[in-house]
Amino acid sequence: MTAALAVGAFLLGVVVVVWSTERLLEGMVGLAALLRAAPFVIAVIFSGLEAENVAVGVVAARSGHTEIALGTVFGGGSFLVCVALGLAAVLFPLRVRLPRGVLVLLAVTPMAGGLALIGGTSSRLAGAALLIIFVGGMAYLVRVSRRHDFFGEDAAEVREAAQRPGRWWRPVGLTVLGLAVITAGAELVNYGADSLIQRFSFPATLMGMVITPAAIEAEEVIRQAVPSREGRHDVAAGNLVGTLIYFVLFNLGLIALVAPVAVPHHVVVLDWPFLIGVTWLATAFLWRGRLTRWHGATLLLLYAGYATTHVLLGT
């Protein structure tokens, strides 16, 4: 395969999974409207669910691409917290008061990911445990939504989407279409990434932990920035909390359960601790009820150091 075809396959795969995810999310929101689901549940579960991340991670694990599979969890989580949240805060500072229990859940989530790292191989038992914790965490968030107007009156579009009845066949069709096309896109991403690694000798760790997560999760910057720009700070915070829970508990749990992978040493000593550290830092900022431009710049600088470390490790 030529370099142009490898790059083309990788970029096309990214475009396909992003596009199909939007169709899937639109379908699921429509299904939630038909089922009369709570607006908070729509915002956290449907905004947090990164189906393309799940698809790429599972396909990569089954194909033996360990770095990419774990990169969708740890690299993706670090990109979310540092780049998506950090850049959004630099552009539009975040002000939101979250329930203390939600902030504790946010801080504990990356620590739970260590269950899949024990013993050098992600075990199916650990995967099952993470999925159980995921269900418990989501149940807690649903319970919180009953006591709090989590997203306030500003999230008009979320509420409107939740209440719009629509025709039943449209959301069902979009959901099925999204799931089908996402899988094809994930295959392209992995095929292109594997070809790039072999042709250009990109370090597998750099490709798995930095390049691929950044390409797949680039849309998260928009998902964080746009709500803040429009004054919907609760929506932006909900996207952060929900997405990180999906990455670490659901994605990693599914990978460990479906296709256990060997855990590289750098994941244990660098990627996992880094995700814990930046998540704790972001939680500390949010504990005070705001995330300023300086806070966002700090997160971005930390990510630059993280990416640079992976570049140096690969040389």
Rank of each mutant, 00 (worst) to 15 (best):
I45W: 12
L117Y: 07
L252C: 08
S123N: 08
E153H: 09
I42N: 13
W19P: 00
P260Y: 05
L286T: 00
A237C: 08
P165N: 11
T66N: 06
S195E: 15
R100Y: 00
S145K: 02
T21L: 05
L270D: 13
V54C: 00
L117N: 04
W169E: 10
P264N: 06
T298S: 14
R167K: 13
L131C: 03
L301N: 05
L174Y: 09
V17S: 06
S47E: 13
V142H: 11
L240K: 01
R170H: 10
L244C: 07
N239S: 13
R293Q: 09
V311M: 10
R232K: 14
T309W: 10
V44C: 05
V268R: 10
L91W: 02
G86W: 08
Y246G: 04
F247S: 13
R143W: 12
S228W: 03
L117R: 03
P264A: 04
V278L: 10
V56N: 08
G136L: 13
L98D: 06
E67Y: 08
A9K: 08
T279E: 09
G75A: 04
A214N: 11
V96K: 08
E26W: 10
L177R: 03
L115G: 04
R23N: 05
G231K: 07
E26F: 13
V108E: 04
T2F: 08
T283G: 14
I255P: 04
I118W: 15
G57N: 03
P273W: 06
P273D: 10
G8V: 09
L130N: 02
E160R: 14
D271F: 01
H265S: 13
L257H: 05
T21Q: 14
A69F: 06
F46Q: 12
G238F: 06
R124C: 05
S123H: 03
E157K: 07
A214R: 09
L301K: 07
C82Q: 00
G314A: 03
G185D: 01
G152M: 02
Y306M: 09
A38Q: 15
F74I: 02
G192W: 10
L196Q: 12
A225K: 09
V189P: 11
P110Y: 02
L206D: 04
C82A: 10
G305A: 07
G27Q: 07
D194Y: 11
R147D: 15
